[in-house]
Design a protein around this nucleic acid. Sequence first.
DNA 1: AACACTTGCAACCGCTACTCA
DNA 2: TTGAGTAGCGGTTGCAAGTGT
Length: 485
Amino acid sequence: MCMTTECVDRMTSEVGIDSTSVKEANAGRNIREGSPLKKGPWIKAEDAILMDYVAKYGEGNWSSVHRRTGLARCGKSCRLRWANHLKPDLKKGAFTQEEEELIIEMHAKIGNKWARMAAEFPGRTDNDIKNFWNTRLKRQRRAEKHMLPLGVFFQEFSEDKQNKELATSSSANSDPHLLPINNVEIPTAENRNFEPSQQLYPPGLLNIGFSSFLDTPATSLRDQGLNSSWNTHSVRSTVHSSKRIRGSEAWFSDQNVDLSQAHHQYQNDGSLFTQSLGFSSLYTRNLTSNYHPSSAGDIPGIHASSSEPKLKGKLELPSFQTLMTSWDSPSSVPSIESSNTFIQSPPNEYTNSCSLSPQSSDLLHAILYGSQTPKASRNNSHQETSRDVGPDSCPVLREIQWGTNPDAITPSGHTITSVFSEYTPSSGGSLEDHQSIAPLMGCSVNQEMANFTPTAGNDDTSNHDLFSETDMYFSPTDWPHDKME
DNA sequence: AACACTTGCAACCGCTACTCA
DNA sequence: TTGAGTAGCGGTTGCAAGTGT
């Protein structure tokens, strides 16, 4: 239907809108494609018409806007425009620190329920919150992209060879999608049907903000092979994520839950989780038990607003990954599709209780801060990053990793402080740097890896030597350029 | 200055839920 | 009960502005 001039005049007079503004507003409508309705950005004239309409008829009946005002917009578009931009009580501008924290908390609780979240934020729309979250997620994925585990790196160029060998091998490993490397099985690129097990993620971890790095969709991770060893310990879930979320919604709202209890409960058997993550249990014990949230809140920089970053260096990494990179601990940190994945799982012995524990808030700060990429930080060099993210410059990292005890012992018997004093990169994380710390961390990095090029001469054995315990993250500086993308 | 790339936001699309005749 | 109309939600995309080279 195409509005005639008379038609517009008649209808606009009925609503009390200047017909010329309607004509102006409709100037760019999509007539060429046969639709009388306009798409794309709204102009002021259109906004004015819509506001007049709402003033007269109130919210609702959006489909009649076009009919009554001649505005060449569909009702859906009008509703959206009103709800997201024209509503008088809308709050514009950046999210406050408190709002951001609350979003993260709520997302951990209810997942991508943007509308429900928006209900808790007067003046904010679901779209705002969604955009905020997605932006944050994007940064996270970018960060992860530069933190492919060594296993994936190796796997990429050894895959052909491995596949050939597997084809002829009488290996006990009956799963052709898993490459055995020093008891760490790395899924091949063909292993696309991975469904992460929620069972392995204790709610406590979700609580303390693990959701941040768990946010990355499984698809992206399995594409990167990040599930690696974790996969081998996982019990595949047969419940599709899109189904799970509805159940979670119900049980979250129906139960007065207390996740902190479950968190403690889980701490008693951290090995399950660490095993699946590829951590040593000692690391995790420190991580889960010795973490004292009260101190993190006082760390300079952690509470800095996004506009006033106090931590020098690159803060793009989600907090937990920052921890890992900061001293290259051996970790094959799996991410699962999102915190939702955990949330969405059917209630089980852990997930039956799920409010944010007291521990959560300060790590949330860290995650939140990791989510904020101060523009200024982009100017900082990688070297600065490596230095500044160290535990001395950022006490919260020390706190989180080792609790309040700087003399906590690493698996190889070194104190944390000694490790850091020994490992104080003076230049960007070179392999020498990795090497200097690797033995202390209970893992080894083969020097050959530095100049590693895939050759036919690299047999399995030498490859296996690359991993003494688990996968290890390479910082981008370690990454051969032809493997970077 | 020009270009490429990144980022954040606005808006659209497809789907589901709800209402009502 | 059913089907049309409408509202709402979440995912995705397109684009303008910002930033880096």
